[in-house]
Computed example of a mutant assay.
Amino acid sequence: MPGTRLTITDEHYRLAERVWNYHQMNHDLRPVDAAVVLGCHDLGVATCAAKLYHAGFFPRMVFTGGNSPSTAQVFPRGEAVHYREHALALGVPDEAILVEPDAANTGQNIAFSRQVLAEAGLHPATVMLVTMPYMQRRGYATTRRVWPEVEAVCASEPVAFRDYLAGIGDDRLVIDTMVGDLQRIIEYPGRGFAVAQHVPDDVHTAYQALIEAGFTSRLIGA
């Protein structure tokens, strides 16, 4: 259950790092027409988007996301709004930013961002999904279902697993969320929310072991 005390062992970290590696798509980055920046509890996603903008990878970006139980206290005005403010502080010009403040799940992140871009007269053929490192695969699988005609490239902060945990400061939250995201990768294609992704046996074994160990607060229905 959420908030339950759980001692994280070296074996748990080893299993979680296997899941972490699976979640990353390892795409080669290249210039695209626009970026879709998925809101979450990690402001580093907005920092990454700002760096990619300044590096010339895209001319416009959409910050997307309202609130969730894990972000309401951190970003009380909504994920996308706080992301925009952070990007402006990092020198991204306001005219390069679009804001989608209502999405409550990944499917809505993609569908609503597409609508916001269209309303701005933008119909990209290629987009860069900027996400948490362990959100890449689910973001990609969702985009392939919701917006199949666009070519998506995934990007996130280039950071090692243990360094990311140290930066977030809540190992349990990160591992629970990675397990929940992997459950959605497995389950959502059957519900029509995402395209299917192959899950290697060793990743599936690690996932099951983490569930059995109690990393369950972000599972569907938890």
Rank of each mutant, 00 (worst) to 15 (best):
L165H: 01
F57N: 11
A125R: 15
T64W: 08
F161N: 01
P93K: 06
A89L: 08
Y188T: 05
H123Q: 10
H82A: 12
A103I: 12
G39F: 15
G169A: 08
T4F: 02
I97E: 02
F58D: 02
R30M: 15
K51D: 14
Q108I: 04
G169C: 10
V150N: 03
L98C: 09
L182I: 12
H27K: 13
E11K: 12
A96L: 06
E212Q: 10
M178H: 01
N26Y: 12
A16C: 05
G169I: 08
W147I: 01
G139D: 04
R84N: 01
A80I: 05
M61S: 06
Y83M: 13
L29R: 13
E79T: 05
P148H: 14
R218G: 00
N21R: 13
D201S: 10
V36I: 15
N21G: 12
P31M: 15
D181S: 05
T131Q: 14
P2K: 15
Q183L: 06
G169V: 03
Q115F: 03
A118G: 12
D176I: 12
T177I: 09
G190Q: 07
G214F: 11
L210W: 02
M61V: 09
M25K: 10
Q108V: 01
L90F: 06
A111K: 12
N109I: 00
N67C: 04
L38A: 06
E149F: 04
A141N: 10
M178F: 05
T71W: 10
V62W: 06
L98R: 03
P124V: 07
D181E: 12
G121T: 12
P148Y: 14
G91H: 09
Y134C: 05
D202E: 14
T64S: 15
N26E: 12
R184G: 03
T4Y: 00
M1D: 06
Q208S: 07
P69G: 07
I168D: 02
V150P: 00
V150Y: 04
G56Y: 06
H12I: 14
A104F: 10
D163L: 09
C40L: 08
Y134K: 04
V146T: 13
G167I: 09
F215L: 07
P93N: 09
A89M: 15
F63W: 03
M128D: 02
A213L: 08
S217G: 08
H123I: 01
R77L: 11
V92D: 02
S156Q: 14
A34T: 02
R30L: 13
D10H: 13
V203N: 01
V36N: 08
P200Y: 05
L165G: 02
S113A: 15
N109R: 00
R144Q: 10
A49C: 01
E79M: 06
D94L: 12
T71P: 04
Q183G: 04
F193I: 00
V19L: 08
G78H: 03
D102E: 15
Q73N: 13
M132A: 14
G107E: 09
A118H: 15
L38I: 14
S68Q: 07
G214N: 05
A34D: 07
